[in-house]
Nucleic acid binder design. Structure first.
Length: 629
DNA sequence: TCAGTGA
């Protein structure tokens, strides 16, 4: 992926991995990191980067995909594939010697993070905690134990307690070790056995609870032990240069796809499984080259994938695994037509033939109903209170009129600055214009800020994210493009400068903090414009043991004058669709035609009131410590 | 309405 000066945590994570081939061949010229092509505001050098003469910081202009597998020259893929070989496109890895180290000894080490200089000993992360505390091993796994779990569907495979119990294969186990994952998170404990059993899955788990690994591990493992490759049907071939991935992972934003790709590459290291990412806004040529060199797992955003499909550079006929991350978003109004086109109107095998895995932290019932079109005899899994947030995130709601928002934000930032701690603050706004204007206003007022939104070009977006993660620009103003999935360690404070219209978006936004078992703070500015959100907001806060201001309760009690339309989700108790819609007597989705009723009754472990079948009951302080998304 | 996703 884009070589990035990633987060501090990433640096820490990379440390123990195989002796990083630290090629610190930085010419002195590369030292002025920000000076070359990047956006102007870059003369500021964060403390931990100062006085480092040997840093190999890449020019910030480095575009996506520049990490072009150095030295992976004409590998066995290139020749096998391009050489006018047998049938149409064997790029899927047809003749690839899987697992043979032979073709892989030049695979770049995804655990090596050569660009960010290692912090000096005793360095501290922006929140002031020592580096060592930011490793995954520092997570309080015990807090996971009491998480409520609900499963429903037929013959649900039992969960596992350790990675060792699962036969993922030696290479994958080694990568898990390299990632320092000691024990599976709750969603992983349940989802991995289900997926390995070949079952379709709809999984809800809190933000940052390890969902990416939960769907990546079974996919990688399945590809490794599966048939040699997606051998396209004879005659079904699209052309010499068509790629035939075995797995497709879709996500709603480019940056999230990049992140999934980076993680999947770590998990796939030296397994022979090739992961390629494709998203818009970046030159397509590098992505095409990557595809030509062979792809088993394709991570993509919908728009670019449609482009590739139209060009016949990708065929989905060999797909064995389909995963939708942020699945509820992928199936909502904006994305649904495109996703339906990809999944239903191209050459992808139908449900029951392929395996389909849907993951999100939120899953409204109406979306569940729609999603069942993509699934067959699936298992519904809910880990933690679905759609709720961690109790580790302290939520504050303040009544602030529109006109006062800026000065109020300034107060917050000053207070934070006065603590002396260096922290990252993520500020969400409603519109792209609003993001631009707030960013420049902050900068004018002495707070180094940058912004990310859909009107910025991809280089600017990636640069902004890197600059934020590195602490160079400790304030990031963002639209909802940054609301979901992005794992940005050390975000201590999320400010909802403008509240979203949808409570689910709020859940995802505040989920950018309070990760890795650490606490986080989320402050929201509420005023009359947000009255339609009052009820769901108050309920959410109550569920997460937050203090609900009296004035907000009064708002919530008011009959919402908009007709109350948009946010009701499922009314009553479980607003967030924490239960399988198939168990809802009032829900007649497609499930009806599949048997409905007791057909699915199987092994539901009951509602949230009671204890779960695994892990014991009660919520008591059991907010899901988050480690990864 | 807004946000996101291809040129």
């Amino acid at each position: 992926m884009a070589s990035s000066r990633t987060s501090w945590a990433d640096v820490a994570d990379a440390e123990p991995a195989p002796p990083p081939p630290v090629t610190t061949t930085a010419p002195a010229a590369a030292l002025a990191p920000a000076a070359s092509n990047g956006p102007a505001r870059s003369s500021y050098v964060p403390p931990h980067l100062r006085n480092r003469s040997s840093s190999a910081a890449p020019p910030p202009s480095s575009s996506a995909g520049i990490l072009s597998r150095p030295g992976a020259g004409p590998s066995t893929f290139g020749s096998a594939a391009g050489g006018g070989g047998p049938g149409p496109g064997t790029f899927g890895g047809g003749g690839r010697p899987r697992g043979g180290p032979r073709s892989w000894d030049r695979e770049p080490d995804p655990f090596a993070n050569s660009d960010p200089p290692l912090p000096p000993a005793g360095a501290t992360a922006p929140d002031g905690t020592p580096f060592e505390d930011h490793q995954n091993t520092g997570i309080n796994f015990d807090a996971y134990e009491d998480i409520p779990v609900e499963t429903s569907g037929r013959e649900v495979p039992p969960p596992v307690a350790t990675f060792a119990e699962i036969d993922l294969g030696e290479a994958l186990n080694e990568n898990i070790r390299r990632c320092r994952y000691v024990r599976p998170t709750p969603v992983q404990r349940h989802a991995i056995p289900i997926s390995l059993a070949g079952r379709d899955l709809m999984a809800c788990a809190q933000t940052g609870s390890g969902k990416t690994a939960a769907f990546c591990f079974p996919i990688i493992s399945g590809i490794m032990r599966g048939p040699p490759a997606g051998r396209p049907q004879r005659g079904g071939g699209m052309g010499m240069r068509t790629a035939y991935p075995s797995a497709l992972i879709l996500s709603p934003t480019r940056e999230l796809s990049m992140q999934i790709h980076e993680e999947a590459r770590k998990f796939s290291y030296q397994t022979g499984v090739r992961v390629v990412v494709a998203y818009g806004g970046a030159p397509i040529t590098q992505q095409l080259r990557d595809l030509e060199r062979g792809v088993d797992i394709l991570v993509a955003t919908p728009g670019r994938l449609v482009d590739l499909l139209e060009r016949a550079r990708v065929s989905l006929q060999s797909i064995r695994y389909l995963a939708l991350d942020e699945a509820d978003r992928m199936l909502d109004m904006g994305f649904e037509p495109q996703v339906r086109r990809i999944v239903e109107q191209m050459d992808m095998p139908p449900p029951g033939v392929r395996q389909t895995l849907l993951f999100s932290a939120t899953f409204p019932k109406e979306i569940q109903r729609m999603a069942s079109d993509f699934l067959e005899n699936y298992i519904f899994l809910a880990v933690g209170r679905v759609g709720s947030s961690t109790e580790l995130i302290v939520q504050r709601i303040e009544f602030v009129q529109e006109a006062d928002k800026r000065s109020h934000l300034m107060d917050l930032l000053h207070a934070q600055r006065d603590t002396g701690k260096q922290t990252l603050t993520l500020v969400f706004v409603e519109t792209k214009r609003g993001a631009d204007s707030l960013e420049s206003w902050l900068c004018m007022n002495g707070f180094p800020a940058t912004s990310i939104h859909g009107d910025r070009n991809q280089q600017e977006r990636e640069y902004a994210l890197r600059s934020f993660k590195s602490g160079q620009t400790p304030i990031l103003v963002a639209t909802d493009v940054a609301a979901r999935g992005l794992d940005i360690p050390h975000v201590a404070h999320v400010v909802n400068f403008d509240l979203p219209n949808d409570i689910d978006d709020y859940v995802h936004r505040i989920g950018r903090t309070g990760r890795a078992g650490k606490s986080g703070l989320a402050t929201a500015f509420f005023n009359d414009n947000n009255s339609s959100l009052a009820k769901s907001l108050a309920e959410l806060m109550q569920e997460s043991n937050q203090e609900v201001p009296a004035w907000l309760s009064r708002y919530a009690a008011r009959p919402s004058y908009g007709g109350g339309g948009r946010n009701r989700r499922s009314g009553g108790g479980n607003r967030f669709g924490g239960r399988d819609f198939r168990n809802d007597s009032s829900s007649f989705g497609k499930g009806g035609s599949r048997g409905g009723g007791d057909y699915y009754g199987g092994s539901s472990s009951g509602g949230y009131g009671g204890s779960s079948s695994y892990g014991g009951g009660g919520y008591g302080g059991a907010g899901a410590p988050s480690a990864w998304d």
